[in-house]
């Protein structure tokens, strides 16, 4: 053994979930110009931006319409009931932060004329059917942020 110094160094055992591993968006008005979406969601309303110039309903919510480039957008309700267009169940390959939930269902929900992706709660893959009705559900994170999901009605 050569005559050199060996020293054990320490690093923190636990670190707060870093931003780069957090899938949920920053929701308040200090961080985003679509904070209204989350404020509406807090009241149980799923909304999105609709272009006042070309009337196109835009998902996800935006600040400029990609169809006509207008920035005159208004909030419109999508409703709380949708229809399953496609679905699956994540059994293997769940990302960090979702591993503890697996297996869980996810799908594409037809709602307010849009097709949007979402977690489908209260369901097993075998029970679901294309065309089945699903209802809006809202989940709250520990830090107060919220997000939408859908759930099986029956």
């Amino acid at each position: 053994m050569a005559d050199v110094e060996f020293e054990k160094i320490k690093r923190p055992e636990n670190i707060k979930l870093p931003f780069m591993l957090d899938f949920y968006p920053l929701e308040d008005e200090k961080n985003t110009r679509i904070s209204q979406f989350f404020a509406n969601l807090k009241k149980g309303r799923l909304t999105t931006t609709k272009c006042q110039q070309c009337s196109k309903s835009l998902w996800p919510p935006r600040i400029v319409c990609p169809n006509c480039l207008s920035d005159k957008l208004e909030w419109a309700d999508l409703g709380v009931e949708g229809e399953l267009y496609a679905f699956t169940e994540t059994k293997l390959g769940a990302p960090l932060g979702f591993v503890q939930d697996a297996p869980f269902c996810i799908g594409i929900v037809k709602i307010g004329g849009l097709l949007i992706s979402a977690r489908i709660d209260n369901a097993k893959y075998e029970d679901l059917k294309i065309g089945e009705k699903v209802k809006l559900k809202i989940v709250e994170l520990e830090d107060g942020r919220i997000f939408y999901r859908f759930r099986r009605i029956n």
Binding site: F23, Y24, P25, W59, T88, G93, S117, R119
Partner: peptide
């Protein structure tokens, strides 16, 4: 990521 990835929507699903 904010609207699909947040639902764990990666390639296999």
């Amino acid at each position: 990521r904010e609207w699909d990835g947040v639902n764990a929507m990666s390639a296999p699903p």
